[in-house]
Design a protein around this nucleic acid. Sequence first.
DNA 1: AAAGCATTTGTGATAATTCACAAACGCACT
DNA 2: AGTGCGTTTGTGAATTATCACAAATGCTTT
Lengths: 410, 410
Amino acid sequence: MKEYQTDPFKGTFGSLENLADKISDVLSCPVTIEDQNHRLLAYSTHEDSTDPARVATIIGRRVPEKVVNSLWKDGVIPRLQESDDPVRVSSIQKVGLGDRVAVSIRKNSEVLGYIWVLEVEKKLNPDDLRLLKLAAASAKSQLLQMQIGTKKKEENRQELFWKMLTGNLPQEKRILEKLHELNILPVLPAVVFILQLQKEITPALEKDILYLAAVNQKINVLLSAADSNQMLLLASPVGKEQPLDLAKSFVETFFTHMKERFSVSEIKAAYGSLVTSFTQVEKSYKEASSVLAVQEKLGGETLSLTGYHELGIYQFLDTIYEKQQRQGYQNEMLKSLQEYDRLHKTELYRTLETYLTLDENLNKASEALHIHMNTLLYRLKRIGEITNIDLKSPHQKIMLYLDFKINRLF
Amino acid sequence: MKEYQTDPFKGTFGSLENLADKISDVLSCPVTIEDQNHRLLAYSTHEDSTDPARVATIIGRRVPEKVVNSLWKDGVIPRLQESDDPVRVSSIQKVGLGDRVAVSIRKNSEVLGYIWVLEVEKKLNPDDLRLLKLAAASAKSQLLQMQIGTKKKEENRQELFWKMLTGNLPQEKRILEKLHELNILPVLPAVVFILQLQKEITPALEKDILYLAAVNQKINVLLSAADSNQMLLLASPVGKEQPLDLAKSFVETFFTHMKERFSVSEIKAAYGSLVTSFTQVEKSYKEASSVLAVQEKLGGETLSLTGYHELGIYQFLDTIYEKQQRQGYQNEMLKSLQEYDRLHKTELYRTLETYLTLDENLNKASEALHIHMNTLLYRLKRIGEITNIDLKSPHQKIMLYLDFKINRLF
DNA sequence: AAAGCATTTGTGATAATTCACAAACGCACT
DNA sequence: AGTGCGTTTGTGAATTATCACAAATGCTTT
């Protein structure tokens, strides 16, 4: 009994592996230690009875996404994040998870990692749980020590990332050197993501976002940075699907997870094109920015466009606009419409824009404009009279459509 | 008898008006003298019996277009241009033309103008016709003298025009001064036309073109220049219609008249946008040039696009293509359509292109493709299934349309 | 106040389109 | 020859777009 009242985990263990083995010894169960992103840090070795989830975690050096999802759905992870107390998880067959007990490794309210104990040989009793809590305290100091180096590295990473984003590091060689120094695997191809929230990104939010990005199996985050209400990521899509499809599905799951797990909604996301060298990061960043600009200024259906490659014609609006500026082009038709609107206090401009934007559908357009269908019809007829716009000509309509959008964008 | 054998028109008459009166005296008929472009030069005054065509000519200071048309149709003008002999024209009621006799004023094979004699009081006898021929000879020397100043002016005009076209005269004031010096009314708005023939523009062809441009009532030519196989015009549309509509209808009548009257076909024409100051002439010229470029590169449907304002999106295709090339863009939808066509020997690609090009009109498209309407409908449904093209999305359709055209172009 | 004009809305008829369904065709494959 | 599949064509109905008119509104002009 005396033994149980003292702390068997006092002192240093040299490495987390040793600590894992010690815990396993004391509790007579397989033990796994993960960091805050469910990346494998250490696992006990002298036990051979285990479950598929643990095997997959060890093999993949991280907890499989579907296991994490399942733990979130059952509220396990939120409970772990909120208290120091061990949480018992009943087996979840679907994801190969046997009965187990987990405890979070925390410093104040910040989660540093988790300890998992599988109940294959025996069930943990209350005393075991008390011991597990002590183990977590021991792991905490070890993890904190490991993170000291990380802080400095993190600053260097930020600096490197911003240099890449702004094109201040134009030599591929230098970038690769820096990445090596920072212990980042230079995985290509990569994509720049922008995740834009409605409010400022706090360190806590940043952690949450990075957590989701790290846990998600679609992309491998190389670098990240918070910029007021935007979170920037340089990441490499991982998987057998098309890289850009992976990027899209990452964004989609990111949305739902941010909402479900952290109650953060109204997020906008965008990503640039795939780059095959780190000197192109700036370009990918600019592209992602322009996707966001399109979303914010054009709204509507463009809100579902997250990838630069999905922008379709919107990719070329800036190019077209530049050329128009160079040659002093003005869309006479739109100008005369606006002039007419000004003089007669009408809304022909908005009418035509809505009509064209809504696929020339009389029903939808008249509804959107809150007018009678015949009014819309009359206005279109007037537009034809006033501007000699020919609504039967695809060329003209396309040019009008683009000019409408350009007027909104620039 | 002796009187008839001498030349009553010998000597100088001071002005063409005096000559007109003299001819009228001798022949006892109303007389009108026109230049080679049927512009009124002089008319006899002491007669009051006349016909509507003559009245209209005097009032408008030029022969009405429909009268000229009618004279061409009846072969009168070609006959006048081919010989020195007077030609008798029977009355043409439709255009208010009474019986009359005309003779051309020629220097070698070049027509300088025409003398018209109305046979209202009496019919001209052979002797009268001989006298008329002498009158034409007398008019010739007068017209030639008038043209001496014109030659020098013409050179100055050319110089001014080229400076304006190339943007080498960027001050509106200076241009207006020059125009005043050259006795050109600075009429605005104006448009630059390019009329492009298949062969080099000879002085004779230049004359013919300017003749049609001058006779045509739609535009008022301020300046002109020949440039290898192109004829450049700076002209102001005249009439109550929209200026650009006038420009278009000028081009249309120009085509038919060049073919009918001078047997010159295969002409391409283009014009830039309406300018409201002469400093913008360069811009209008460049626009006209780009219209021609599109016509030549795309052909087919674009041949009917003569005005820059009608060009729509075509001006930007090259820019868009270049950007696509730079970033290795490919339209996946069109690629998969082509792939499907190849594998199944179908024509979905052409179907969609035709459908979009013909303004998404089922009737027109099915007719153009020689298929049943429902077949077209079915194909469009299949296209949607195969490619996840959404034909309700304007932005997708526009991208497709542009890629179709780009695929044709490059 | 009256008149003129552009605009909006309503009603009803007409034309065009989309859709559902059936039948037939052509072709590859067995 | 039969089968299955994708395709084409035909028929008819449902939906939608378009047109013609009438009536009412609001605004400016006289």
